[in-house]
C-alpha cells in the first residue's frame, strides 16, 4: 500500500511536514492536542525518537496515536537504542499497523541525554537502516531469512546542507540515496541563497527534498543554536531582526521569519517542500503556515 505521504511527495505539490514529540511519561494529552491541530494541515508529521537522547514514550507508540487520530505519521527511528534485530522487529510492527513512513537517523550520542551511563548501540547506521528497510520489502530480513507477509515503506533520511566540512556529509547523503532513501528532510537552513547552492547539487538525485525550518523563538535561542547545534547557522541579520522585536513579540517575529522563508522556498521552487520544526511550540505551526500563505 502506498502511503498518503508518498502520494503527496510524488504528486508534485509543495509538501509540508511538521513534528510532534512524545511525552516523558504516559500522559498523551498534549501530544494528542498537537496532532489534532496539525493532522489536517500538514501532509505528515514526524514523531521523534527519544530526541536528544532523552528517554520518552516511544516514537512507535506516538506514530500509532497519530494514525489512530487520522493523521499521517512519519516514524523517526534512530540507531542509538536498538540493534538490527530490534529495529527490524519494530519495522514489522509499524508496517502491520499501517505506519508506512520512516525517517532513518543515526541518533545523538547517549551522553547528551538523561541516561548518561546507558550503552549506545549503533549496530546499524542511518544508511544501513534505509537499506534494511528495502531488504525487508523484498521479503527478507538482515539475516537472509524469508518473511511471512509483506512490508512497504516510504523511507527517508536527513542531510545537513550547512555542515562544515560539507563534502563528507554529501558523500553520506549520496549513500543514503543509493541505499534507497526516497525523501530527505534537511537540518535547519536559514541562508536560503546557500541552500539554493545545495539544491543545485542535490537536484541530480532521484530524491524528494524538504527544507528544514526551525522556528526562531528569540535572539538568544538563535545564538545558542549557532554555538551548540552542528550545521545550524543563523545569519546575523536574522538574529538582529529577532532582537529588534518589541518585548513579548519575539515569537511573532519568529513566526513571521519562518513564514517568509517558506514562502520564498515555495515561490522560487527551491525544493519539494518544507519540514517545520517548532521545537516545543507545535501549536504555532498553523500560524507559520498561514504566514507562508499555505492555508
Amino acid at each position: 500500500m502506498v502511503s498518503a505521504f508518498k502520494n503527496a511527495l510524488t504528486s508534485g505539490k509543495f509538501v509540508v511536514t511538521s513534528e510532534v514529540a512524545p511525552p516523558k511519561g504516559t500522559n498523551l494529552d498534549k501530544m494528542a492536542h498537537h496532532i489534532e491541530l496539525l493532522k489536517d494541515k500538514v501532509d505528515a508529521m514526524n514523531v521523534t525518537d527519544h530526541q536528544s537522547s532523552v528517554m520518552r514514550f516511544p516514537s512507535l507508540g506516538g506514530a500509532l496515536l497519530v494514525k489512530e487520530m487520522g493523521g499521517e505519521p512519519i516514524l523517526q527511528m534512530t540507531c542509538r537504542d536498538r540493534n538490527r534485530m530490534a529495529l527490524e522487529a519494530d519495522l514489522l510492527f509499524a508496517s502491520q499497523r499501517g505506519i508506512n513512513n520512516v525517517l532513518c537517523l543515526t541518533g545523538d550520542a547517549v551522553m547528551f541525554g538523561d541516561h548518561k551511563e546507558a550503552k549506545g548501540v549503533f549496530d546499524l547506521d542511518s544508511s544501513q537502516l534505509v537499506a534494511a528497510i528495502r531488504r525487508l520489502e523484498k521479503g527478507e530480513d538482515l539475516g537472509g531469512n524469508k518473511l511471512d507477509g509483506n512490508v512497504s515503506f516510504c523511507a527517508g533520511a536527513i542531510v545537513t546542507p550547512e555542515a562544515n566540512p560539507l563534502e563528507p556529509q554529501l558523500i553520506k547523503f549520496e549513500k543514503k540515496i543509493e541505499a534507497g532513501a526516497e525523501f530527505i528532510q534537511t537540518q535547519a537552513v536559514y541562508d536560503l541563497d546557500n541552500f539554493k547552492g545545495f539544491m543545485d547539487y542535490a537536484r541530480q538525485f532521484p530524491v524528494k527534498i524538504l527544507a528544514g525550518i526551525i522556528l526562531l523563538t528569540s535572539a538568544p535561542m538563535a545564538r545558542f543554536m549557532n554555538k551548540n547545534v552542528a550545521g545550524v547557522n543563523v545569519p546575523q541579520e536574522l538574529i538582529d531582526e529577532m532582537a529588534s522585536a518589541p518585548k513579548g513579540r519575539a515569537l511573532s517575529k519568529g513566526i513571521e521569519i519562518a513564514g517568509r522563508m517558506i514562502k520564498r522556498v515555495r515561490e522560487e521552487k527551491m525544493c519539494d517542500g518544507v519540514h517545520i520544526m517548532a521545537i516545543g511550540k507545535e501549536e504555532v505551526v498553523p500560524e507559520i503556515m498561514a504566514a507562508a500563505g499555505l492555508d
Binding site: 543515526t106 547506521d125 542511518s126 555542515a163 562544515n164 556529509q169 549513500k175
Partner: peptide, 20 residues
C-alpha cells in the same frame, strides 16, 4: 568515531570535531 560508524560522519560533527 564515537559511534563506530562505517559509512561516513553523523550529523553531529562540526568543524571537523566530534559532537561529544
Amino acid at each position: 568515531c564515537h559511534k563506530g560508524l562505517v559509512n561516513g560522519p553523523c550529523g553531529g560533527t562540526n568543524n571537523g570535531k566530534c559532537e561529544i
